[in-house]
Design a protein around this nucleic acid. Structure first.
Length: 302
DNA sequence: ATCCAGGGTA
DNA sequence: TACCCGGGAT
């Protein structure tokens, strides 16, 4: 009798302890899974839950979203954060309609070519929606593998090719088992092997964890500098977008000027929103969410 | 203050 | 590689 593999231990634990999340249910469409993965980029599960339900009730397939405006996508995004994701998700829906007949593709290269779909999300969709065998590596999986296998306290800030290899080597051969194991690794990192205060006492791989065996060494040093928010352009962008989201007609710049005192920073933030395809100027001195109303007249003669 | 199911760009 | 990009919860 051989010892259960690392993936087997975590998968068994997952089957008994997984959170009851709606996008994990049987029969959830690839589109619904893709939407959940995009929303979950840098946004905690509890905040995604209601937004995911509302989004799919309104746009149950890519064609429905592709037929609507970026403005409505930005509004439905609400306060999930990083609203460029809303525009990219709509761009993604358009691309799915144009390139794949409205069906979310099942090939990794085609998924990677879609707007807003990167290394993590492409493999997550291929694995969780189509049952394929790919290493699905997010911040949780990097941390779990780094600790339990390498015995180090913290993973690097970004996913490197070596991280994909390390995770792939832990996956069972059977694709369905591999997909389950990937979900289990992520769940372990989210619920047990957390960044701050890991719950080693209830961890299913506590007995084989290299990090625990080495005495749970502390992180070497402050490798990441704290990400500020207050006072940054991001906060100003959020304030500006908040006004435009609530508006039903173009907003005069004079009204936008009231959300932030610093002229230079406010102008820079507004220009950034325009560059990012979230906001568009209307006439000489008004702004609106992109596509939020009748098409703008074509400018002639420069 | 720190973290969060990352992706795009220079 | 480094940096930019929201916002809420702990």
């Amino acid at each position: 009798m051989t010892e259960p593999t690392f993936a087997t231990l975590v998968s068994r634990w997952y089957e008994e302890n997984a959170r009851d999340l709606p996008w994990r249910e049987r029969g959830v469409s690839p589109w619904a899974i893709l939407v959940s993965e995009v929303m979950l980029q840098q946004t905690p599960v509890v905040r995604v839950l209601p937004a995911w339900q509302a989004w799919l009730a309104r746009w149950p397939d890519p064609a429905a979203l592709a037929a609507d405006t970026p403005a409505e996508a930005i509004r439905m995004w609400g306060r999930l954060g990083y609203p460029r994701r809303a525009v990219r998700l709509r761009d993604c829906a358009v691309a799915i309609v144009e390139r794949h007949g409205g069906q979310v593709p099942d090939r990794l290269d085609q998924l990677l070519a879609l707007p807003g779909i990167g290394t993590y999300t492409a493999r997550a969709v291929a694995a969780f929606a189509y049952g394929q065998r790919h290493p699905v590596v997010d911040t949780n999986v990097r941390r779990v593998v780094c600790r339990a296998i390498a015995g180090e306290p913290d993973a690097g800030p970004t996913t490197r090719p070596a991280d994909l290899v390390a995770a792939e080597e832990l996956l069972p051969i059977a694709p369905a088992d591999a997909a389950l194991a990937s979900a289990a690794f992520m769940e372990l990192g989210a619920v047990i092997c957390t960044a701050r205060a890991p719950r080693c006492a209830t961890c299913p791989v506590e007995s084989v964890c290299a990090w625990r065996a080495s005495g749970r060494t502390a992180p070497a040093g402050p490798t990441r500098r704290p990400q500020k928010y207050a006072g940054t352009d991001r906060q100003v962008r959020g304030l500006l977008l908040g006004v435009l989201r609530e508006a039903t007609s173009p907003v005069p710049r004079q009204r936008l000027d009231q959300v932030w005192a610093d002229d230079v920073q406010r102008s820079r933030a507004l220009a950034g929103l325009v560059t990012d395809g979230l906001v568009e100027p209307v006439g000489e001195a008004s702004y609106r969410l992109v596509g939020d109303g009748p098409p703008l007249p074509v400018t002639l003669g420069g």
